[in-house]
Design a protein around this nucleic acid. Structure first.
Length: 597
RNA sequence: CGGGGUGUGGCGCAGUUGGUAGCGCGCUGCGUUUGGGACGCAGAGGUCCGGGGUUCGAGUCCCCGCACCCCGACCA
């Protein structure tokens, strides 16, 4: 490709609204352009890099028996109503009506379509197992798109779906993906770790997320350096220190003026925060059939701990959870800052109240809790004696330094970008949509499903994030839009001859099957070199009068400082060798990764 | 959805007490230059986010919207 014809320009300055290095550089180098919040065009360079990534995905999917298909972007609402997600998922789902006033959905994922295909195509255990996949556009109207391509609303995703006759089959396909995904990321040149994760809107039995670790990541992970425990903060557990057993003491009301926070309360009473109970108020949306009801949630955790809203959401089977406002808290008869489940009015005119307490609360005697009266707290509240909860479960968030649930060593908190995920769905969708098959024993059984996704744009951005320096991008050979950046410098002296040499080299390289971006523009050396660094192709060749007079063409790798002169007639071989070396270096990193349950 | 910020030429920005818009980069033409974002000369390019209002007069002041970015909530 000639740069004089390339449909994108480099920018000297990044748009002011870009923050992450990958975002700035992808825009500056002309890989992407923004159309609206979270909506981007892939320009020619970006598209080529994406295609490289997607072909790696294809290769790895095909290697584990995948068959590529393309499913529709637009779905009738009916299939989403069948599984209930039409009601469960909120504003994130793109909905519209067609001209006949029928409800339609913009596909955010394709379990429903796969289940529909399955019930139409699969009738016998003889047809299983199956692995199908597609690389296709998704729409998720994220409330807050950000960070360039990391978090967008419209994006391309490789999503695969496994269909099995039994759980053993699912396990096999799940593990095949587990490794194939590592292969994909390693072939793209980024290190990732797999962590156990929440199943979220997908439902199902088990899930892993592949995390690229970077401070710019928006997910928080807890890792144990001593054993191999790793989990998303949303589901991470830890070893809780149970309080020493005590005899329940008499309930006592004390004045605690200006003690609205746990810290102030503990300080005022001279007790550790672990001797207090913290109440958190939320409003939950809980689906019940095709309807959903709002409930006021009273969550109680020990004062020294933090509520984990994902765990609470799961305990409530809620579709939405948000903090309650002061007005709402008052409306149910509680007093902000001094609230507790003790002495809460049985009924209120606002919303039904659900009380959920952390498992540690019943084990902790004589906690200080609010008195539901401004300026007062209760000493010695005891679960069971003074109040009861609707649900007792594990509710607290793991934090840096908490004990690993497996080995007790301190956990470490890191940030990461979720570049892929795998889910054991089980029969959630096949049950809902009647996707069954006849098994060997003659019985009708639901197909067992798995679902696996990788966003290609997010992966591209992660690769850019991992591989760049102050001058620009540094693409791994496997992802680079072109392998070679050919620069011609045509000074006054010998300009014509230099140009002819470069033109010939451009043709020869292409004839040899090398992917070349050829900077044939009329521009100064500084401009060309800076653009080459910015775009970041792995190998740079410079044809100039100076280099030619010294006997050849200058050869430089983007990831190295050294430049060397290579005679013209050896260039093609040298380039092909270097490409092979770069590939080999990447493939050396594609290794077996032990499965961590 | 809460909190904060920003909207002026393609990009980055300035614009004073309110007086009819400017700088750098980029772009066009001509010439000089050519190994790390060259220089000269001549140009093109602006509904100042939108709508109301105040005023003789609004990029500037006041309302109401919208868009984009950041933090949080949320998120496969």
């Amino acid at each position: 490709m000639r740069m004089s014809r390339l449909f994108s320009q480099t920018l000297r300055e990044a748009p002011a609204d870009a923050e992450m290095p990958s975002h700035k550089l992808l825009v500056r180098a002309g890989f992407i352009r923004q159309l609206a919040a979270g909506i981007y065009t892939a320009m020619p360079l970006g598209k080529r890099a994406l295609t490289k990534i997607e072909n790696i995905m294809r290769a790895e999917m095909n290697a584990i028996g995948g068959q590529e298909i393309t499913m529709p972007v637009v779905h009738p609402a009916e299939i989403w109503q069948e599984t209930g997600r039409w009601y469960q998922i909120g504003s994130e789902m793109g909905r519209f009506k067609d001209k006949n006033d029928r409800d339609m959905v913009l596909g955010m994922t394709h379990e429903e379509v796969v289940a529909d295909l399955t019930r139409k195509e699969i009738h016998s255990y003889r047809q299983l197992p199956v692995l199908i996949y597609q690389i296709q556009t998704k729409w998720r109207d994220d409330p807050r798109p950000r960070a360039g391509l990391i978090r967008v609303r419209e994006f391309t995703m490789k999503d695969s779906y496994s269909l099995d006759a039994d759980w053993k089959g699912l396990d096999k396909q799940y593990r095949a993906h587990y490794q194939a995904y590592f292969n994909i990321f390693h072939r793209c040149g980024i290190p990732v770790i797999a962590v156990k994760s929440d199943v979220g809107m997908m439902g199902g039995k088990m899930a892993h997320e592949y995390m690229y670790l970077t401070p710019y990541g928006e997910d928080t992970l807890l890792l144990c350096d001593a054993c191999d425990y790793s989990a998303n903060r949303q589901i991470a557990t830890f070893q809780k220190q149970a309080a020493p057993a005590e005899e329940p003491q008499l309930l006592e009301k004390v004045a605690t003026p200006e003690c609205k926070t746990i810290a102030e309360l503990a300080e005022f009473l001279g007790i550790p925060e672990s001797k207090t109970a913290k109440a958190v108020f939320l409003i939950a949306e809980i689906p019940e059939g095709e309807e959903s009801v709002q409930k006021f949630v009273f969550a109680v955790v020990r004062g020294d701990m933090e509520l984990n809203e994902t765990k609470l959401t799961n305990a409530l089977k809620a579709s939405e959870l948000r903090p309650a406002t002061e007005e709402e808290i008052i409306a149910v008869g509680a007093v902000p800052g001094y609230a507790s489940p003790v002495g809460l009015p049985e009924k209120n005119d606002y919303l039904p109240v659900v009380t959920v307490v952390d498992e540690l609360i019943p084990q902790s005697a004589n906690l200080v809790a609010g008195a539901n009266e401004a300026g007062y707290h209760l000493l010695n509240t005891n679960y069971g004696r003074d109040y009861k909860a609707d649900i007792v479960t594990e509710l607290t968030a793991a934090r840096q330094g908490d004990g690993c649930p497996r080995c007790g060593e301190p956990l470490r908190e890191v940030r990461g970008v979720e570049v892929g995920n795998i889910f054991k769905l089980g029969t959630r969708y096949s049950d809902a949509m009647g996707a069954t098959f006849q098994d060997k024993d003659g019985k009708e059984k639901p197909v067992i499903m798995g679902s696996y996704g990788i966003g290609s744009g997010r992966l591209l951005a992660s690769v850019a994030e991992e591989h760049h320096d102050e001058y620009g991008l540094i693409w791994p050979i496997t992802v680079a839009p072109y392998q070679v950046h050919l620069v011609v410098l045509t000074g006054k002296k010998g300009g014509e001859e230099t140009l002819q040499t470069a033109e010939q080299l451009y043709r020869d390289l292409r004839d040899a099957g090398v992917e070349v971006l050829y900077d044939d523009r009329v521009a100064s050396p500084g401009v060309k070199f800076n653009d080459a660094d910015l775009i970041g192709l792995p190998i740079r060749l410079t044809v100039s009068a100076r280099a030619l007079s010294q006997g050849g063409v200058e050869f430089k790798r983007r990831d190295q400082q050294e430049r060397r002169l290579i005679p013209l007639d050896e260039i093609i071989t040298a380039v092909k060798d270097e490409i092979a070396t770069l590939h080999a270096d990447i493939m050396a990193k594609v290794v077996e990764v032990p499965f961590v349950d």
